[in-house]
């Protein structure tokens, strides 16, 4: 029984190591900024999730007590990874793309992040516009 659990832990560790490596390798290898966003946010998060799963099984099978700290970290990482990806993508769109260089938005005509009303700037509130 112990050996089966050890094999399971080793499997999770090796799979997560491969995923973590692939995530960071994709960051170097992929061609443009938007596809480079895929590798770290998906593969690396999955890699960390695998390490945390292995850690849960290790604490149950080898040290014989249940530890759920890992679940908290997993939950936090899985919640925050899409948010950071969204913010980085938005920064990229506004810094190095224009509505003309982006692919078309089909029936909407324009992407939502560019669809903001133009506010008239008056002389008085120069400081408050940021």
């Amino acid at each position: 029984m112990e050996t089966a659990f050890e094999a399971l832990i080793a499997f999770f560790l090796i799979v997560s190591g491969i995923f973590g490596f692939v995530g960071s390798f994709g960051l170097l290898k992929l061609r443009d900024a938007m596809s480079r966003l895929h590798a770290p946010t998906k593969a690396t998060t999955l890699g960390v999730g695998g390490v945390l799963l292995a850690s849960i099984f290790h604490s149950i099978a080898i040290e014989h007590h249940l530890s759920l700290h890992e679940l908290l970290i997993t939950l936090f990482l899985f919640l925050t990874a899409p948010v950071t990806a969204h913010f980085i993508a938005k920064a990229h769109i506004h810094m190095s793309e224009t509505p003309e260089t982006l692919p078309g938005a089909e029936q909407d005509g324009i992407w939502a992040t560019h669809d903001v009303p133009v506010v008239e700037k008056t002389e008085g509130d120069k400081d408050s516009t940021a």
Binding site: V51, L77, H92
Partner: peptide
């Protein structure tokens, strides 16, 4: 080249550091 890529790499570095810490604890 771009600042966005550097921020993305920093974020990935943080996640990898978390994985390394948990491995060390394991």
């Amino acid at each position: 080249k771009g600042v966005g890529d550097k921020v993305l790499a920093l974020d990935t570095m943080v996640i990898n550091a978390i994985a390394l810490m948990i491995l060390y604890g394991l």
